[in-house]
Design a protein around this nucleic acid. Structure first.
Length: 153
DNA sequence: AACACGTACAACCGCATTGGT
DNA sequence: GACCAATGCGGTTGTACGTGT
């Protein structure tokens, strides 16, 4: 939890907001899985990288994503930084399980607009299109017959 | 305790769209 | 209108972790 205290010195983010919304990355060891990740090119964001990104945005705002990685001292591309902020680090994002109300709302909205995740996310406060897409894919993909039987509009 | 398997979700990729010149 | 760069979106892949055997 020291991580949250560390961030409090960088303005604008309350302790409550951070604690509710941020899960620091796991300490990761040099496992075979990590070696494989290196080979495949997929690299999870470290605690330090998150901190750098948050500090930079708190200090200078989002500005241009293309110049942000260099200015913030991040060895990441602009798309990666944007994605990390938009889908994970933004203080207004809710983390944790979807409530039954959210679940129901997503089901209804998906029935209306199908896979327009950003549109659905716009109607579900605190949730991102990515969160909703993941939620849907893990819970309902390939199970349309199950949910369609109990949805009511 | 060790392994296999399934689930959740973070990260990436490719394409589409938007905005500036 | 054409071109290019930046940004946004949805699909897919890979990792971490929980659970069952």
């Amino acid at each position: 939890m020291h991580f949250f205290n560390e961030l409090l010195g960088y303005g604008g983010i309350s302790c409550e907001t951070l604690q509710a919304s941020y899960k620091p990355p796991m300490e990761r060891e040099e496992t075979s899985a990590k070696k494989h990740a290196k080979r495949s090119g997929k690299r999870l964001w470290s605690h330090e990288e998150d901190l750098r990104l948050i500090r930079h945005i708190e200090a200078y705002g989002k500005g241009s994503w293309t110049t942000l990685p260099q200015k913030a001292g991040l060895n990441r591309n602009s798309k990666s930084c944007r994605l990390r902020w938009m889908n994970y680090l933004r203080p207004d994002i809710k983390h944790g399980n979807f409530s039954p109300e959210e679940d129901d709302l997503i089901l209804r909205l998906h029935r209306l607009v199908e896979n327009r995740w950003s549109l659905i996310a716009g109607r579900v406060p605190g949730r991102t299109d990515s969160q909703i897409k993941n939620f849907w894919n893990t819970r309902y993909r390939g199970k349309k017959h199950i949910y369609s039987s109990f949805i009511t509009i």
